[in-house]
Design a protein around this nucleic acid. Structure first.
Lengths: 213, 213
DNA sequence: TCAATCACTGATCACCTATCACTGATTGAT
DNA sequence: ATCAATCAGTGATAGGTGATCAGTGATTGA
């Protein structure tokens, strides 16, 4: 219960950045609880304890709040993948361990995952906010890059099927994304037991990419 | 150019169903061109040539229009999968051919696919339209059912890896969905050549599910 | 001391989905 | 032939949305 429904005191002169963080924190909380489209700018403002127009002093549009949260979350994912929290990936189990980090991240941060990987990359002119240059989100780029780097190691050892590294990476990514996004989008579906399902899917992917002996 | 921007004549007494179809046709066209969230009820009404409130004589909410379109589209997919437009699935290529029908359908009907498989299955109370019982969409159920049926045949012949049929189906489904949904959500991503990518991913999935010799 | 800057606000715009009271045309039963 | 009932359709409007704008004090450096 830290959402101030009363007014937050005016920030001192140089402390605009603080307020910015407060907004992001409140938005993250609300987005996570109610979903991105069910939360209004007025609700965010009230949670912070400021007026709704004040948000626009810190962010150009509502979407930009979500995008910033998403960028941060995925920077974290890229970091985790790169840090090698998984062990060496010289065998099937190694690949599975790495892919697992991705899947767990998605399921533990469903709202961020939705914003980053499941939302349409292009908003066609909503009358008010125009197309906007839809440069691919840095989060997608960096996550993909790390993934490719790890898989390239495997490939260099001749352990993968005969496939160019880009396609190889895109296949692995698709396989994980499919499971994560379906489980997020359809929580009511009678999924197999969670742990069993994840382990199976990761094994299927790894097996599919693995060089047959 | 068949969108009547002028008034459509009043329907005769028993012809309410006709108007309903006109609304669905106009909505499908607009949704496909501009995306589901960028089209307003006013725009749909104008395309049909009726007033905006009239829509609510035929559909309880805007979402219901999209849902009906989605139901129809996915009934078609289930039909295609069940009809065996793919040949027999007794070998790796056979599995690939079946999965291919699913992928092609998704990429050819991206907007329907988005509504059916990518949108959140739960709208948490938007104040106005309350939670609504989120029975799983029949489209998802029937598509999944057909897919499972086909894979069960493979399993019965002992051609799959050792995995219960539900998990097996969910893994295959996830693999295809991952590719389709990513390509839809991130059209700006530098994907591998389309045909090559699809073929590779289907082969990876099929290979992953295939019993190793 | 005081103009400039900064954090912030109330009022409002244009748009949205959805509801409501209402209007005519059409109909079937008397 | 009449006339109440039904049905297709409407204008006005309620209450929500994201975003804009002119303005208001507190704080600050010169």
């Amino acid at each position: 219960m830290n959402a101030p429904s009363s007014r937050s005191p005016r920030k001192a002169k140089g402390q605009g950045a603080e307020r910015r963080e407060e907004i992001l924190a409140a938005a993250l909380k609300l987005f996570t609880e109610f979903g991105i489209y069910a939360v209004s700018t007025r609700q965010i403002a009230q949670a912070v304890g400021i007026s709704q127009p004040t948000l626009y002093a810190y962010f150009p549009t509502k979407d930009d709040i979500g995008h910033e949260l998403q960028d941060r979350a995925f920077a974290l994912l890229a970091e985790k993948l790169a840090a090698g929290d998984h062990g060496p990936i010289v065998d099937l189990d190694g690949v599975v361990r790495m892919l697992r980090i991705y899947v767990d991240f998605g399921l533990e941060n469903p709202d961020m995952y939705r914003i980053g990987f499941m939302s349409e990359g292009q908003h066609v002119g909503k009358l008010r906010h125009e197309p906007k240059d839809v440069a691919l989100l840095p989060a997608v780029q960096s996550t993909y890059g790390v993934l490719r780097g790890e898989l390239a190691k495997l490939q260099a050892r001749g352990l993968t099927i005969d496939l160019d590294i880009e396609t190889l990476t895109q296949c692995a990514w698709s396989g994980m994304h499919g499971l994560v996004s379906l489980m997020i989008a359809k929580p009511g579906f009678p999924w197999s037991e969670r742990e069993h399902l994840i382990a199976s899917q990761l094994r299927v992917i790894a097996r599919g990419l693995w060089r047959g002996d």
